[in-house]
Write a protein that binds this DNA or RNA. Structure first.
Lengths: 192, 192
DNA sequence: ACCATATGAGACATGAATGTCTCACCGGAG
DNA sequence: CTCCGGTGAGACATTCATGTCTCATATGGT
């Protein structure tokens, strides 16, 4: 059928392929096009019909990651209520995409090149704004810059995704680990 | 001269080459053997005389990173005094190697393969032991496992190295950022 | 049943990185 | 000065991922 139903500018096939590619590349970032195709249960030729080449695949993955992260930011409603609760909602919303995000973040090949996808700037700005709002509300300390807190957020999400994947901690603890460390740190407070 | 002075099982030449290779690969993990050679100011043939191939180079880099990290652990004297102070010493000692560590950590190609260098297990155990000692001393909270705190430590060191490198924060703040976030978190405590 | 489309498998060429080789050159030791 | 080990430059073959192609097949609608 040539008249397929489009959803979000992406066919269902394409979406499925992209999902499995993300899952594979998250684990093995150097996976070959053939491996990606096999992982998706399709032939290499078909993969090439969907994505012109490896670059196009990675770009599509980048778009997917940005889209998912942006959706997580929307779902978390960062402007509402306390910033601590907003951060908890954000981590919960971003968990399903953590692996993909981790892959994209470490794929610094994207960042060293000509031009970065402007989507990352938008995302950085929104996360950074959350931390700034928390500082202005007196919830977050002001001696750590929003820029650093944003990078630390990415770093901890990646570390959490990795740690869960290798089985060093249970996936059930993902949100708790990240939020608690990011908010409260490792030091035992007097009250606890 | 065929009778060269050996130091730490490594010639001075080899050491220099390894340093610049680490610096380059930290920035561009996909750098070519030729690029590595140029960065070291030597010819590709000479690079091959020092390291049989790319794999050997990466292995040597891994050994160097492990060696430096182990030296940092020694210098930090993790068993002495409070664990908070020990952690501060560790971050300070590890700062010069942060870029190399970041490269090696993200080079998951090393971890997905046949066998991981047993050195990583030793390092993990020592860092983990620090956090466990802190928990036993009542300094650190016990609801975050030493395994997670260890991974978070790696993640924050990597994030810090990256953030400093791209100029998002000043290199001068490296230690403070990491230690303060890892120990105290982003939440503003009542006393502050 | 027929046809159109998409697919999988494989062959093939291309390009890039790698690994090996030779050769001319340089600098120091004898 | 002469010799010799180390070096840089380049040529060369090899390997591997990639990209393109063809063709037989399966699927699905008419």
């Amino acid at each position: 059928m040539s008249h397929m139903v489009y959803c979000c500018l992406m066919t269902l096939d394409r979406e499925q392929v992209l999902r499995s590619a993300a899952a594979l590349l998250t684990r093995k970032s150097t996976a070959t096009m053939d491996e990606v195709a096999r992982a998706a249960g399709i032939g290499r030729a078909t993969l090439h019909r969907h994505f012109a080449g490896r670059d196009a695949l990675v770009k599509a993955l980048e778009s997917l990651g940005i889209q998912e992260f942006e959706a997580a930011l929307d779902a978390a409603a960062l402007d509402e209520g306390s910033c601590e609760e907003a951060l908890r909602r954000l981590v919960a919303a971003v968990e399903p995409s953590a692996g993909l995000l981790s892959f994209l973040v470490t794929e610094n090949q994207l960042f060293e090149g000509d031009e970065v996808n402007e989507g990352w700037n938008r995302l950085d700005a929104r996360v950074s704004a959350l931390f700034r709002r928390g500082q202005e509300r007196g919830e977050f300390r002001i001696d750590l810059t929003p820029a650093w807190l944003t990078e630390a957020f990415y770093g901890l999400v990646s570390a959490g995704a990795w740690t869960v994947q290798v089985g060093r901690v249970a996936g059930q603890d993902f949100q708790y680990m990240i939020v608690e460390l990011l908010l409260g740190g490792a030091r035992r407070s007097v009250g606890q």
